[in-house]
Amino acid sequence: MTPAGTGVAPVAFISAELVTDVFLGTATVFILLVVAMFYRVVKGPSTQDRVLAVNVLGTNTVVVLALLAAALGEPSLLDIALVYALLNFLMAVAISKFTVERGGVL
């Protein structure tokens, strides 16, 4: 995997592999955080907990996608992050309206 296109100019003593590894390592930590947050999604107990948790999940996903884009040298993954950021908002609005209005999403 070459970090071509990441925009990160490797300094002489930092190899390209190291940069990739650091990005991927950070992404892995974020995934572990996501797993931890997922406990809240399952456990609840209230819908508000779940909404908030799933929103955090979404935001984390965006971060992970950005890190992946840098690590794998695929700037196109940023487009997906953008889509996600948009829809995550929509999802939060929908679920919270659903909860607040007691089932009437309309």
């Binding site: 819908t47 909860t99 089932g103 009437g104 309309l106």
Partner: peptide, 23 residues
């Protein structure tokens, strides 16, 4: 986790819309 508010939607269909300035 049963303490969450009871959510029902059969009766309150289209009138349930509440304006929210923030949203």
């Amino acid at each position: 986790p049963n303490e969450k508010p009871v959510v029902r939607g059969a009766d309150g269909s289209e009138s349930a819309y509440v304006e929210s300035q923030v949203i």
